[in-house]
Design a protein around this nucleic acid. Structure first.
Ligand SMILES: NC(=O)c1ccc[n+]([C@@H]2O[C@H](COP(=O)([O-])OP(=O)(O)OC[C@H]3O[C@@H](n4cnc5c(N)ncnc54)[C@H](O)[C@@H]3O)[C@@H](O)[C@H]2O)c1
Ligand SMILES: NC(=O)c1ccc[n+]([C@@H]2O[C@H](COP(=O)([O-])OP(=O)(O)OC[C@H]3O[C@@H](n4cnc5c(N)ncnc54)[C@H](O)[C@@H]3O)[C@@H](O)[C@H]2O)c1
Lengths: 213, 213
DNA sequence: GTAGACATGTTAATAAAATCACAACAACAA
DNA sequence: TTGTTGTTGTGATTTTATTAACATGTCTAC
C-alpha cells in the first residue's frame, strides 16, 4: 500500500504508534482514543489524528480507533509486503542487545545472520541468529537476499564494513558507530549515537533546572 | 555561556559536530571547512554555518574553522560548567554497551554508578563504574548529586525505576526501554527505540529501491 | 593591481512540521 | 426534544527548520 510522500516524521511516529498499540493490545481493550496514544508518546492528540488522517484511517467518533485494525493498517504502509531481511555486523554488547531485543517482535523483518571475527562467536547461534565469519558476509547476504545491515563493530572497522555491505547489495544501513560513513545515494543510511542523546538530555536537563527554579 | 533559545535540532547537531571534530583532531589538521563537517554528517554546509552563526562563532575566511577553538566553544555552550553526573540503571547488554562506549569520552559528564538486582553484578566494577544494588539507588544518587539517569532494565520494570529516579531528584532521563514513561515537566525525558530506527531504515530502503530502479 | 577561485556570514525565501480552531457527529441525560 | 459532553477530521495558521542567494573577504596567479 502506497501513500504519496508520507512525511519523514510521520513514518517514525507510525512505528511508535504500532509499538504502543501492540503494548496495550493485551489489556483487553479494543479501542483507543487519540489522546491516549498521544499521552504515551508525549505528543499532542492532534498530531496523532493528523498522522492517521494522512494514512487514511478513520476512527469511530464515540469509541476512538480500533486497535487491531490500526496496527494492521500501519503494517500495510510501513512494512514491505514480501518482508525484508536483516543482518547484524559485530556481535558485541550492542549487537547482542539488538538481537535479543528484536527477537520475535516484527514479522516482516527477519534477523537472518550476524557476522564477527571472534572465533568464539563464529558458527554459534545467539538468540536464534547464527553468527558467521565476516569473510562469508557477501556470500550470505546475496544468498539470503538480505537488504538491511546493522553496524556494531568497533568504530575503526566501520567504513570498510559499510563498503562491503554496499558491494554486497544491501539497501539500507543502520550505523551505531560514531564513524561517519559514506554510501551511495541509493542506500539509505541512518546513524545513531548514544552520547548525542545523552548530551541532549544533559543540555535540556540543565536548562529545565534553571527554568523551574 | 548562554544563548537565547538555541533550536532543538541545533543542540543535537552541536554534539555531533564536536564528535566529528574530536575525531579529526588527531589527524594533525588544525582547521576545517564547513563543507568538510557537512560531508561527515550528511548535511549541507549552509546548515553548519548557520548553526555556528547561532553560537556566535566566526571562522577564518581562508582556512575555515579552528578545530580546537570550536570544540571548546561547543563545550562552553552545551556542557554544564560544573559538570553533570550520570548513572545507568540495568547493567545488561545495553547498559554495558553504553558504559564501555562512553568511557573517557566526555569530561563534563561523569559516569558515577550503575544499579542492578543481579547479585553477580553488584559490588563489582565494570569498566571503571561501580555497580550497586537497586535498593541503594536513591541514597547514592543524592549523595553524589547525580542528575541524569539512563534506563536499561527490562521493560516491565521501567516505570517504577523512572518514578524512583524522579523521587531521587534526577533532572533528566534517557529511556531505552519501549515502555512509555510519565515524568513531571521539570524532568527532561528522551526515549530511543532501536526497532523504530530499523523500521525507518526498512521503509526508506524499500522506497529508495523503487525510486532508483 | 586586478581577475579568478573559493571561503564565510547573513538576510530572505521556502519547506516541513506542529498547532489552532472549529465543524460535524454520537451518545446520553434531563 | 434539546442541551451537554467529548470525540474525530481537517482547513487555516503558526512555528520551526532548511535552503537559496548573495555580499563580503582573502589568497593566488599572472
Ligand atoms: N552509537 C551508539 O550509541 C553506541 C553505543 C555503544 C557502542 N557503540 C559503538 O558500537 C560499536 C560496538 O560496541 P560494543 O560495545 O558492542 O563493542 P564490542 O567490542 O562489545 O563488540 C564489537 C564486536 O565486533 C567484532 N568485530 C571486530 N572487528 C570486526 C570485523 N572486522 N568484522 C566483524 N566483526 C568485528 C568484535 O569481535 C566484537 O564482537 C563500537 O564501535 C562502539 O563505539 C555505539
Ligand atoms: N531501546 C532500544 O533500542 C533497546 C535495544 C535493546 C534493548 N532494549 C531494552 O533495554 C532493556 C535492556 O536490554 P538488555 O539487552 O540490556 O537486557 P538485559 O537483560 O541484558 O539487561 C537488563 C539488566 O537489568 C537488570 N535488572 C532487572 N530488573 C532490575 C531492576 N528492577 N532494577 C535494576 N536492574 C534490574 C538485570 O539484572 C539485567 O542486568 C530491555 O528493556 C530491552 O527491551 C532497548
Amino acid at each position: 500500500m502506497f501513500i504519496k510522500n508520507l512525511p519523514h516524521k510521520t513514518v517514525e511516529r507510525l512505528s511508535q504508534y504500532r509499538r504502543a498499540l501492540l503494548m496495550i493490545l493485551s489489556k483487553d481493550k479494543t479501542h483507543v482514543f487519540s489522546h491516549e496514544i498521544a499521552q504515551m508518546l508525549h505528543i499532542t492528540p492532534v498530531q496523532v489524528r493528523r498522522d492517521l488522517m494522512l494514512i487514511g484511517y478513520s476512527g469511530n467518533l464515540r469509541k476512538g480507533y480500533d486497535i487491531k485494525e490500526l496496527i494492521e493498517l500501519i503494517g500495510k504502509i510501513i512494512d514491505s509486503e514480501r518482508g525484508q531481511r536483516v543482518a547484524v555486523v559485530g556481535l558485541g554488547n550492542l549487537g547482542k542487545a539488538f538481537i535479543s531485543y528484536f527477537k520475535g517482535k516484527r514479522s516482516k523483518l527477519s534477523m537472518i545472520a550476524a557476522f564477527d571475527v571472534n572465533p568464539e562467536k563464529i558458527n554459534r547461534v545467539f538468540d536464534g541468529v547464527p553468527c558467521y565469519h565476516i569473510n562469508q558476509m557477501t556470500e550470505i547476504i546475496k544468498q539470503n537476499n538480505i537488504s538491511i545491515g546493522i553496524i556494531t563493530v568497533p568504530a575503526e572497522q566501520a567504513p570498510e564494513i559499510a563498503e562491503a555491505l554496499v558491494l554486497s547489495g544491501i539497501k539500507g544501513i543502520l550505523n551505531y558507530t560514531p564513524k561517519p560513513l559514506n554510501v551511495p545515494a541509493y542506500v539509505y543510511l541512518e546513524e545513531y549515537d548514544m552520547i548525542t542523546s545523552l548530551e541532549k538530555v544533559a543540555f535540556f536537563a540543565k536548562k529545565n533546572d534553571e527554568r523551574f527554579k
